[in-house]
Amino acid sequence: MTGPLLKIEKLEASYGHVAALKGVDIEVNAGEIVTLIGANGAGKSTLMMSIFGYPRAQAGRILYDGHDITRVPAHEIAKLRIAQVPEGRRIFSRMTVLENLQMGATVGEPTHFPKDIARVFKLFPRLQERINQRGGTLSGGEQQMLAIGRALMARPRLLLLDEPSLGLAPLLVKQIFRAIRELNERDKLTVFLVEQNAFHALKLAHRGYVMVNGAITLSGPARELLERDEVKSAYLEGGRPAA
């Protein structure tokens, strides 16, 4: 291992005159699950999106595998085998499950398609049952599975997940998180997870960062963060799961 897989240095970004990110530093090592937690509007999703260039970083650098990707266009970033599950899932609702997965393989090798789709169906058997069903007719949990499955079709080295637990029943959240852990442990997939559901995210992750108002205030091993009083009071509602 030579340095982290993803390294974000002093990243700044803004919407018009409103600064959303005020010099953020984050490292994600290969094989790790790293989570970024924070309240609504802290800038978590902005950070996630700025890795893909929307909004563009105004200062700082984003390094992937040692290469500077700060100014690389979004569609080129996907070719570097970084896959993103954007906030709100954003599946193609009028397209079938199969077509959605096919779109995910846009940057992948066509010959890998059968193998990759088998891997997704093994991870989420529900998707196979719904293969010719339109994305918009799936339940929220199935849509999340589809969004993750679609991202996996590109055989990513780094998977960016933006609030996969959003709007899901606790049981489904567990199922999704179990799948993420499985991907990490079995396939050695590196995961960068943005979550509001701090309890589950920190239980899953190896390391965590806490973001407040566009800046990182705390970081460290996830287990330690779970025990920190500031984290407990702010995100875990006195130690109980905030889900």
């Binding site: 979004a74 193609f92 009028r94």
Partner: peptide
């Protein structure tokens, strides 16, 4: 067709 459905998703999937 994907573009019609969702432009942001398209970009993150590597569509120009």
């Amino acid at each position: 067709e994907a573009l019609r459905e969702d432009e942001i998703a398209c970009r993150s999937l590597g569509i120009n």
